[in-house]
């Protein structure tokens, strides 16, 4: 079985994000980057499927500039078999990422594509669904449990949805996007890191994929959000409830 996993380089979720005064983006000096946490969960799930089945090929894909190699090496160190880096400058909008992935799916013919439900920089939550529609595949987004059928012709996936949990059955090949509680990703071991250095990491310029890369969404500016002022400290519960009643008038 071949599993393709998408992994994106994003700023560390614990980093403080500041908007550049000229409105062209965020301040990236000294910013630490990591594998998007949801992508990391997708990698982990692929590895678990591989281990459970006693074999599978796990191929990582990232789209970004040269430095995204770091995140692919992290995934290889976790245990993925090889990686493909689609080289593109700057931010690439979701639909182009989906087109690039669709092209790679055509070339690699995986039976399953795992990805994160959203990347924590752009917060769009659309690429997996777009890819599924482009391929004419089924999808299971926001997955918190994946059960592959023995013959691998389908999967029953539990999804985290408004109001509870939903189970759906999706025919394979399929796109599954990971939610937070699907698993806890492992750390790369030292031998894993050593091995990762020797694993294949192929680079493909985006332009070589032969897809339409013209922009559909134009970013005009990036601004800081409206500030919220800190209010007052209260000393007692009594004071708090009184103020909520008489001043804020919310109870």
């Amino acid at each position: 079985m071949k599993i393709l996993v998408a992994a994106k380089r994003v700023p560390d979720p614990n980093a403080t994000i500041k908007v550049r005064p000229d409105g062209t983006g965020i301040v990236t000096d000294n910013l630490k980057y990591v594998v998007n946490p949801f992508c990391e969960i997708a990698i982990e799930e692929a590895l678990r499927i591989k281990e459970k089945q006693g074999g599978a090929e796990v191929i990582l894909v990232s789209l970004g500039d040269q430095v995204s190699q770091e995140q692919l090496r992290t995934g290889l160190a976790m245990g993925a078999d090889r990686a493909i880096l689609v080289l593109a400058e700057g931010d690439t909008e979701p639909v182009i990422v989906a087109r690039a992935l669709a092209k790679l799916v055509e070339q690699e013919q995986p039976e399953l594509v795992l990805m994160g439900k959203q990347s924590i920089d752009d917060d769009s939550n659309v690429v997996g669904q777009m890819l599924a529609e482009m391929l004419g595949w089924g999808q299971a987004t926001f997955a918190s449990e994946v059960k592959l059928a023995d013959d691998k012709s389908s999967a029953v996936v539990t999804r985290e949805v408004d109001g509870g949990l939903e189970d759906i059955e999706v025919q394979m090949p399929a796109i599954i996007t990971a939610d937070l509680r699907l698993n806890e990703p492992r750390y790369a071991s030292l031998p894993g890191i050593m091995k990762a250095r020797k694993k294949e990491l192929k680079e493909v310029p985006l332009a070589d994929l032969g897809i339409d890369t013209s922009a559909q969404v134009k970013t005009i500016k990036i601004a800081p959000p409206p500030e919220r002022e800190a209010g007052k400290r209260v000393e007692t519960v009594e004071e708090l409830v009184n103020l909520l009643h008489t001043e804020a008038k919310v109870i």
Binding site: P11, P13, I17, K18, V19, I26, P94, V95, I120, D121, D122, D123, S124, N125, V126, M130, Q216, V217, K218, T219, I220, K221, I222, A223, P224, P225
Partner: peptide, 29 residues
């Protein structure tokens, strides 16, 4: 073209949407 989770639709048709966990607001068209 798609914009998700938008917080504003301006008179000129441009769109506001939060990114980076709400640390930034993007105006897109």
């Amino acid at each position: 073209a798609m914009a998700s989770d938008i917080t504003g639709y301006n008179d000129d048709g441009t769109i506001e949407r939060p990114t980076y966990a709400g640390n930034a607001v993007a105006t897109v068209s």
